[in-house]
């Protein structure tokens, strides 16, 4: 189930939080962004080890939390991965695995774009 840890550029630039500039959220958004590389590594570890149960839990938590930090698109993509993992169960066939791999790569790519900086031009 190995995948590329650096799956290459994914379309789109930096992804700013909807709450950039909200004083109540500045610290939390920064923390979310700072911790994102660990989350990404943990998700990739689960994927490489075939630990789909833990990967689903991570996607579930990311789905629940991302919107709260002002990154709803990350949450939507995490929700798609969670749904994909739920649909295939524990022993996915190769076609399902390919689809899941795409979803993981897309989610990881989007996660790597998050930034605590306000949107350019804001």
């Amino acid at each position: 189930m190995a995948t590329n840890r650096n799956p290459g550029p994914v379309g789109g630039g930096a992804l700013s939080s909807e709450f950039a500039g909200d004083p109540d959220m500045t610290e939390l958004v920064q923390m979310f962004v700072d911790e994102m590389p660990q989350r990404v590594d943990a998700m990739l570890d689960c994927w490489e080890k075939g630990n789909l149960g833990d990967l689903r839990r991570m996607a579930h938590q990311l789905k629940g939390a991302s919107g709260g930090y002002g990154f709803p698109t990350v949450g939507q993509m995490a929700a798609q991965l969670e749904a994909g993992l739920a649909a295939v169960g524990r022993t996915p066939d190769s076609e399902a695995l390919d689809h899941l791999r795409t979803q993981v790569v897309e989610l990881v790519g989007m996660c790597r774009r998050v930034t605590s900086e306000p949107p350019s031009g804001a």
């Binding site: 109540d24 959220m25 610290e27 939390l28 923390m31 979310f32 938590q61 629940g64 939390a65 709260g68 930090y69």
Partner: peptide, 14 residues
């Protein structure tokens, strides 16, 4: 069980 939810609610219910 999500620490993110703890953080977010702590900030938003401040």
């Amino acid at each position: 069980d999500s620490i993110d939810v703890h953080r977010l609610l702590s900030a938003r219910l401040r």
